[in-house]
Nucleic acid binder design. Structure first.
Lengths: 220, 220
DNA sequence: GACGTTTTAGACAATGGTGTCTAATTTTAC
DNA sequence: GTAAAATTAGACACCATTGTCTAAAACGTC
């Protein structure tokens, strides 16, 4: 395949590159198919051909369908969590214009965590297969959505102590911020429509305006 | 086939009572199974035994699985829409205490339309089977969630003209109201946990407080 | 080039589901 | 009570899927 090459460092690792590529290809294809068809509706054959791989290879890597499904879910959850906290770290702690910066942050949040493929996948899978695999999504709930609330709350608390906001309950404010950001997008996300960038910005601006009206300190 | 319809017309309504009961029983059982297992994961056998009916009877009433599924979805959508507009009609148009009355309304909305069995079913099914049956959910989207927005907007508009609220964009305010009501419940609904009445009330109160802070007219 | 590993296509049994058919039984209408 | 209609259990063909197995081919490494 890629016998051409640049600096090859370690043979042992190199040998795994082919395997690793296949693994990733399978994981990716499986995610797409599971997301579209659900667990029961997805067939290994479809996943294999979507991954350009023989069925047997799928079985070689992931013993059985259940196992593959769990690997896919964990993979997507890890990516989603990483993206979530990466986006969280771009929260405007020293804002120039609080309203503008919060809106931009809201756009990033929608774009990177809610409206992307992983976000769609997780909403769909948690809802449709959550009851069948309680333990699987439980850890994600605690480390993902569970933590974003407290993390955002802490960030709002800092803004509040700086006098930029006037918030009594930080946890509630954090949840409300997230809810407001989603307010205009929920119909889209529910029906699987990906909103345009312009829609994202409008939604973010509406959300932040209302949030600020509710939580801005009294004008000087 | 044809002779069947002749005789059915000839028969009085009484004979349909038994049939009708079976139909409803099947519909109910199918809703439960489809909701739990998804379309692909649900089997006619399971539905039949959940309905205490033979498999053949299911096929007699609803030719095929697809057909049964669509009937179930339409049934649930009708119920959900009826409940939605019934709840909407209890909107406080002449509130004693706007905050209290709005909160009570929010509780009714959560309780009757969002956290009940039909709400759960629709969220799950729209998300998991929406792409497979676009036309099926499209009409619901327009007549249900699509209309609740405009209806709520109209109601807020009246409150605004009475001077009880100060809203610039009624549609946005309506969506935000709904979003705020859901803010504290989203985690629960996503994971299929039914919130307690106390949680509903707290969520409603938080939502309305923020909504009022953002949209209450300046104090006299 | 030789070797071990991985991948592949295809056959395969086992399973479980759909939808049909039949013949017997129960329910309902009059 | 009788006749028509509905329901039932069971058998059935058919199909899709899972997971295993095999022998051949491709690949990477030395």
């Amino acid at each position: 395949m890629k016998s051409n090459s640049d600096t090859i460092q370690k043979m042992s690792v190199h040998s795994q590159r082919g395997q690793c590529a296949k693994r990733l290809s399978i994981l990716e294809a499986a995610a797409e198919v599971f997301c579209r068809q659900g667990f029961a509706g997805a067939s290994i054959d479809e996943i294999a051909s979507a991954a350009c791989v023989s069925r047997q290879t799928v079985y070689n890597h992931y013993r059985e369908k259940d196992n593959l499904f769990m690997a896919v879910v964990e993979d997507v959850m890890d990516r989603a969590n990483a993206m979530l906290f990466s986006t969280l770290s771009s929260f405007p702690e020293n804002p120039e214009s609080l309203e503008d910066d919060l809106a931009a942050f809201a756009v990033r949040l929608s774009h990177n965590c809610i409206c992307n493929q992983d976000g769609k996948f997780l909403r769909k899978l948690v809802l449709s297969e959550g009851e069948r695999y309680p333990h699987l999504f439980e850890s994600w709930r605690q480390h993902g959505p569970g933590k974003i609330g407290t993390a955002l709350a802490a960030l709002f608390s800092r803004l509040s102590h700086k006098g930029l906001l006037q918030i009594d309950d930080f946890d509630v404010a954090a949840r409300q911020f997230l809810a407001l950001v989603n307010a205009d997008l929920q119909m889209n996300t529910l029906f699987g429509v990906t909103p345009t960038e312009a829609e994202l910005e409008t939604a973010a601006r509406n959300a932040v305006r209302t949030f600020m009206r509710a939580y801005a300190p009294p004008a000087v």
